[in-house]
């Protein structure tokens, strides 16, 4: 029996998965905080305790994500693009296009169902079209990020929101609120604008069906719905979509053991 770890240190949240030959033994998520090294250590401890294992039991660890280089105990560092493709292919082998909505970037990649990536693209650096805008809006509206999706789906009359830029979105939201727009309608408008921006990013590398959505943003039902409406077809979301990169990292760790054998 081999045990492997996949650890994804994101700019906002860190995620980890522990696998054996058969499947997942547990996963863990926490805020990345300011000290990525410490977060990585804590992640490992949590995963080991969930699986009832010790450090010595682990055959291989693959790290990915924004802070991956600070996972000093990792055997290998892989880009999150490759990990995402691996993770999605294991859960949704029919997916050809993967949209990952993270805090800093939205990433779109095309894969073949075996976990190999053919092309990918990242959103621009101003955090436009990324999950950051949802955090900003949650703060303005004084709701929790995980409430946003449900609220948005309750909207009766979506506001036409004009910008997907996190900076302008804040002022636009505030000025809309002063026009007595409801939270629900505002959020629905924001989701629409964000989804349109994500879609145009995806169109830049071409969208092949089926389409899967992962990352923290895929937990937002309002955003998933908005993207479905814009694309006019269904979108697959795996269970625990925020874990996809960590899962992919763990699978890569396990596969490289098999190859070495």
């Amino acid at each position: 029996m081999v045990f492997v770890l996949g650890i994804d240190i994101g700019s906002a949240q860190s995620k980890g998965v522990i696998l054996d030959d058969q499947g997942s033994l547990g996963s863990f998520e926490c805020a990345s905080g300011g000290d990525f090294k410490l977060t990585a250590e804590r992640m490992r401890e949590e995963l080991l305790s969930r699986a009832g294992r010790s450090v010595d039991d682990i055959s291989r660890t693959v790290a990915t994500g924004y802070g991956s280089k600070l996972v000093i105990f990792a055997d290998e560092i892989k880009s999150d693009i490759v990990c995402l493709a691996k993770g999605v292919s294991s859960q949704l082998p029919t997916a050809r296009t993967v949209i990952d909505i993270g805090d800093l970037y939205t990433k779109v990649l095309r894969t073949d169902g075996n976990g190999s990536v053919h092309s990918f693209i990242l959103s621009g650096k101003c955090a436009g079209g990324s999950g950051r805008i949802l955090q900003v809006i949650a703060r303005v509206l004084q709701v929790r990020v995980d409430e946003i999706g449900e609220l948005s789906l309750k909207s009766k009359k979506r506001v036409e929101f004009n910008t997907g830029c996190a900076v302008f979105a804040e002022t636009e939201a505030i000025s809309r609120l002063s026009q007595e727009v409801t939270k629900e309608d505002l959020l629905a408008g924001l989701h629409r604008a964000l989804a349109a921006q994500i879609n145009s990013l995806a169109e830049r590398i071409g969208v092949e069906q089926e389409v899967a959505m992962v990352g923290g943003g895929a937990r937002d039902a309002g955003l998933v719905q908005a993207l479905k409406e814009i694309r006019g077809h269904d979108i697959l979301v795996p269970p625990n979509p925020y874990m996809t990169a960590a899962l992919g990292a763990a699978i890569i760790a396990r596969e490289s053991l098999t190859i070495q054998d």
């Binding site: 929101f161 004009n162 349109a196 145009s200 830049r204």
Partner: peptide, 11 residues
């Protein structure tokens, strides 16, 4: 149009 978010054009 200032009221229409730019989407397709950005592709």
């Amino acid at each position: 149009s200032v009221h229409e978010p730019i989407t397709r054009g950005d592709t």
